[in-house]
C-alpha cells in the first residue's frame, strides 16, 4: 500500500490535470466522484467519526483545487490526493485536541545494570491467520491502534500502514527524523504491550 513512492504519471492523469488547470467543471466533478470514496477511507483511519472524516475530505478537495496549478506530476493524482488527505486529517486532529486513550502499561523494556534484558512472560498469542479469517479480530487490533496516544497512532499509521518513509513522515508531522524513529519505536512498543495484554 505504498502510495508515497514516486511513480510515473499516467497519460490519463496528465490529461486530467491539464483540464483541471483550465478550470473544466466536469473534470472537477470527475475528480470528486473518482477519488472521493478513497479519500474518505483514508480520512476514517485517522478520525473517529464520519462527520470529521467528511469535513476532512472536503478540506482536502478545497486544498487540492487551490493547489492544482502547482501539481508537478511527480506522483499520480491518487498519490497526490492521498497525501493531501493525510495532511488535512492531521490538521483536523490537531484542531480537535485531546481524545481518550487506553491506560496501558507504558513503561519501556526493562534492563538490568549491565543493559541485559529482564524478561517477562508476556507474548502475543494473536496470529496473522486469526485476522485473515476473523473480521472481529481485525477490528480489535484497529481498536488497539485507535486507543494509542495520538502521536504514537499517527506514526504507526503513516509509517506502518500508509507506507510513508521516515523522511516523508518527518515532513508530514513537522518533527525531526530522529523524533520519528524514536516515536515509532515507542509506538510499536506500546502496541506490542497492548496486544500482549490480551488473551485470544
Amino acid at each position: 500500500m505504498d502510495l508515497s513512492k514516486k511513480v510515473e504519471i499516467s497519460t490519463n492523469d496528465i490529461q486530467l490535470v491539464e483540464q483541471l488547470k483550465h478550470g473544466d467543471t466536469d473534470s472537477f466533478e470527475y475528480l470528486v466522484r473518482e477519488y472521493g470514496g478513497y479519500m474518505l477511507a483514508i480520512a476514517k483511519r485517522y478520525l473517529h467519526n464520519d462527520a470529521d472524516a467528511q469535513d476532512t475530505v472536503q478540506d482536502a478537495y478545497i486544498r487540492a483545487f487551490q493547489a492544482i496549478h502547482n501539481f508537478k506530476g511527480h506522483s499520480s493524482i491518487k498519490s497526490w490526493l492521498h497525501r493531501i488527505t493525510v495532511n488535512s486529517a492531521l490538521m483536523k486532529l490537531r484542531a480537535n485536541g485531546r481524545r481518550p486513550v487506553e491506560l496501558i502499561d507504558d513503561s519501556p523494556s526493562l534492563f538490568d545494570g549491565n543493559g541485559k534484558r529482564i524478561e517477562t512472560n508476556s507474548e502475543i498469542t494473536l496470529s496473522i491467520e486469526d485476522l485473515a479469517i476473523d473480521a472481529n479480530k481485525q477490528w480489535l487490533v484497529k481498536a488497539k491502534i485507535d486507543l494509542l496516544p495520538i502521536t504514537s497512532r499517527n506514526l504507526l499509521l503513516l509509517r506502518d500502514i500508509e507506507g510513508y518513509s521516515t523522511e516523508e513522515t518527518s515532513e508530514l508531522l513537522n518533527i525531526s527524523i530522529a523524533a520519528v524513529k524514536t516515536g515509532l519505536h515507542r509506538a510499536r512498543q506500546r502496541l506490542k504491550k497492548s496486544l500482549e495484554s490480551e488473551r485470544y
Partner: peptide
Amino acid sequence: DYQKSVKLSQAAF
C-alpha cells in the same frame, strides 16, 4: 513479537 505486532497492525488494515 515486535515484528509480529507490526504485521498484525498491517493485517488489521
